[in-house]
């Protein structure tokens, strides 16, 4: 996993509540057995005017000009700004894979769905929760200001707006540590292998039916 420390990135808003993982990456693309290559199909049904198929070359497909991700001013965006309950629905990790492959490293929202939120950290994406009024204000600013960038500082846990206003966010210390170092959870967990084996042995003794 890539480390995440600081980012000075262009922001694109998708001003909707309850964006589900079916919308982020439609099911036909889940047939891939790889982790990469989902970026061109991120938000496929909103981005393109035709129906996308896996394996298809996307550069010449008809694009929906009204969708933010297609607008010239937002090209190269690394920060996605959105509203409530982002990432709800299916647990598919293809959703953060698609967002990452598209180029997003930070998602700022009023709230996230649990599984999606969790999946972000496993892939080096930083999900940031900010209060609704701050998100609303930011959406207005982004729309009014071409080239709008935010500076995200993970060690300091701050987001800085172009006008200098600094917003603080919270993050679990353990997750922060993992992101800052690009640590892989499995390696970390296996430091406790002995404890896991002891727990398992006790469980096998107390509830043998679980080990049939």
């Amino acid at each position: 996993m890539d480390k995440f420390v600081r980012l000075d990135g262009l922001v694109v808003p998708i001003d909707r509540n309850n964006i589900d993982t079916d919308a982020i990456i439609p099911k036909q693309f889940l047939k891939s057995i790889k982790r990469s290559g989902f970026g061109p199909n991120a938000f496929d049904e909103w981005r393109y005017m035709d129906v996308g198929e896996p394996g298809q070359e996307c550069t010449h497909r008809p694009k929906n000009p009204n969708f933010a991700l297609n607008q010239p001013r937002y090209q190269g965006a690394q920060i996605l700004l959105t509203r409530q309950n982002f990432g709800c629905g299916s647990s598919r990790e293809h959703a953060p894979w698609a967002l990452l492959d598209f180029g997003f490293r930070v998602i700022v929202a009023e709230s996230f769905a649990d599984i999606f939120f969790n999946n972000c950290f496993k892939n080096g994406i930083l999900p940031i929760i900010l209060p609704a009024n701050e998100v609303g204000e930011m959406v207005r600013q982004v729309e009014a200001t071409p080239g709008y960038k935010l500076t995200v500082d993970l060690p300091a846990q701050t987001v800085t707006r172009p006008d200098g206003r600094v917003l603080n966010f919270t993050i679990d210390p353990f997750r922060k540590e993992c992101l800052l170092n690009g640590w892989d959870d499995i390696g970390l967990t296996l430091r406790h292998a002995e404890k896991i084996r002891e727990f398992e042995a006790r469980r096998r003794f107390e509830q043998p039916w679980l080990f049939a």
């Binding site: 982790r35 647990s91 599984i115 679990d172 296996l190 406790h192 292998a193």
Partner: peptide, 20 residues
């Protein structure tokens, strides 16, 4: 728990899930 693919790998490798 419904889990993501990284967690599937984590459970396969460690028989544990990281949770709060």
């Amino acid at each position: 728990h419904g889990i993501g693919t990284s967690e599937v790998e984590h459970v396969l490798a460690t028989q544990c899930l990281l949770q709060k």
